[in-house]
Amino acid sequence: ALCTAPLRAEMADDELNINGDTPIVTKAPAADFLKGHLDEVYSGWLFRTDSSRAMEQDDFDNPIMVFGEQGMDNWNVADGSEGKSCADCHGDIEEGMKGVRAKMPHLNAKGELWSMENYINDCRTERMGAEAWGWDSGPMKNMTVAIAVQSRGMPVNVKIDGDAAPFWEKGKEMYYTRYGQLELSCASCHEENYGNYIRADHLSQGQLTGFPVYRLKNAGVVSIHNRFKGCIRDTRAETFKPGSQEFRNLELYVASRGTGLEIEGGGVRP
């Protein structure tokens, strides 16, 4: 709606600098493929209240760090028939997982589009002889937080050309599909109306750089796919499952819309 344009200024004029030593780019010119759709891209952090934003500035105040620490602990714990831990193959998490969040999702050696959770489970089942973790299970979310933190301050770096292009195109098509009885697409809320309020919710651009996020409302960690599931459900639609091919395609496309921004996960959201 055109009349709402000036309200987009309703965004915090603030800088994110986690622990005072990790500055994060939260505003950037939009990627070329977004011409005519968005001029600039913004982290969801800028649309949150002063108190939520402040919690993300300092790890002592950020409730997600407790979960991240549990993930770090698990990194060194051997599991499964092979008696191996993540550290046995990947070394220190700070080294082994640096930049990994920023390039997710990406194609595996077989040409399938995998999210972070797929890679983790592949290591567990194929390399450790351990059981797969549920997509939204506690240990999985803790591990994805621990891994995301290693990419803080690194620019979004997803590959969308070559063999990734067909997945990206499908994700883009989904982004503009008007689902459900309310006939709303991701773009209806996050492209046409970011900066506006839908009831009490201040709409952001729906970027992924804060993920996984801690939601104060659920007092827990929320994965990217779980957020997608909720947003599609809210259009009075039959939603998709976390981990589905559809959500992995959508994740690639939405991640690419954040090109120019830097990873800040784990974020804090209402």
Partner: peptide, 14 residues
Amino acid sequence: PFIRPGDGYTGKAA
């Protein structure tokens, strides 16, 4: 016609 109509806000099929 709707695309993937749901049963209210349950996330299930209509």
